[in-house]
């Protein structure tokens, strides 16, 4: 038995060591760094000087970070509600036995196969283009003036719309797998009892998908909190207030931006800690609100 324990330890040791070195250590270092004034990300500990919660005070007094948080909230809440609702709707429709469901499933998932860079470029350079863009062609066809879809007022929403388009398929597949796991007997007996499709959805599908919904909300929160690539693609030359998100702010703070040489790794670490806390808080809240353990099937 003792020998077995040694063997077990030897087998898990490489994974545990890697986890400690590559995950736990950087996380702890970042958390500690957020309470110090540090210019370089890789500066020696001797170059760190303790400054309490000053980094947190600094970022929450910074207009750029506050804007990035507002943008994050818009992506998380508005984008989340639309994406998850549409994904759920598509999933329900595609599991209801409609014709060509295989085709529709593939078509809706397709944007996830295309590189995000190509997808964002298509939206920025073609769909939202002022002169010949798809949307403005439609707008002028209806006899209205062209709209500046990527102007300062609309750019965040344009970016969110494009991101939603690229995300729905992914969440739809998760919901489909959840719905397909629900026994069909439940629907059959509900139909015999005269329950309408909408009643079946609200009384059977939705309650039995609580666990899946909780997972998708957590995934969406993580994706919104770590949102970076789309922001960069919608502001390719330099960071813009209309599309800045916390991770972009973090990046600029730690590495400097175009023409900016000042860096503050301590403040960047504070941003990282704040984002982590947001994700943990959302996870705990959804865990409490959407308990799925009380239902078995």
């Amino acid at each position: 038995m003792k020998k077995n324990k040694t063997l077990i330890f030897l087998f898990i040791a490489p994974t545990v060591i890697c986890l400690l070195l590559m995950y736990v250590y950087p996380v702890l270092r970042t958390a500690v760094m957020s309470f110090f004034q540090v210019e370089d990300l890789t500066a020696d500990l001797s170059d760190w000087s303790f400054n309490g919660v000053d980094n947190y005070v600094k970022i929450f007094h910074n207009a750029g970070f506050v804007t990035s948080l507002k943008n994050f909230l818009a992506i998380w809440i508005v984008g989340g509600v639309i994406t998850l609702s549409l994904a759920m709707l598509m999933a329900v429709i595609l599991t209801s036995g409609i014709r060509f469901q295989g085709f529709f499933r593939a078509a809706i998932y397709l944007p996830n196969v295309v590189s995000a860079v190509a997808l964002a470029t298509m939206w920025v350079q073609y769909i939202f283009n002022y002169d010949y863009g798809l949307l403005n062609q439609f707008v002028t066809l209806l006899g209205f003036d062209k709209i500046r879809w990527l102007g300062t007022d609309a750019k965040l929403w344009a970016m969110i719309a494009a991101y939603i388009y690229g995300s729905i398929g992914y969440y739809m597949l998760i919901y489909i797998s959840g719905i397909e796991g629900i026994p069909t007997d439940l629907y059959e007996s509900a139909t015999i009892d005269g329950a309408a499709k909408s009643t079946q959805f609200f009384r059977i599908t939705l309650p039995l998908l609580k666990g899946i919904i909780k997972t998708t909300i957590t995934f969406w929160t993580i994706n919104a909190a770590t949102f970076y690539l789309w922001s960069k693609l919608f502001s390719p030359v330099q960071t813009e207030g209309s599309t800045i998100v916390p991770v972009v702010y973090l990046y600029d703070t730690v590495f400097g931006g175009k023409g900016v040489v000042t860096r503050d790794a301590g403040a960047g670490a504070a941003v990282g800690v704040v984002l982590t806390l947001i994700i943990i808080a959302v996870y705990l809240v959804t865990e409490r609100l959407l308990r799925s353990n009380d239902l078995e099937y």
């Binding site: 007094h61 910074n62 207009a63 750029g64 804007t67 300062t152 330099q238 960071t239 813009e240 207030g241 209309s242 800045i244 702010y249 931006g257 175009k258 023409g259 900016v260 000042t262």
Partner: peptide, 17 residues
């Protein structure tokens, strides 16, 4: 410079907007 007298301001991103 490339906006060097302004780009170190804490509200630089908002200024650009």
């Amino acid at each position: 410079t490339w906006c060097g007298s302004l780009n170190t301001h804490p509200a630089w991103d908002s200024m650009k907007t």
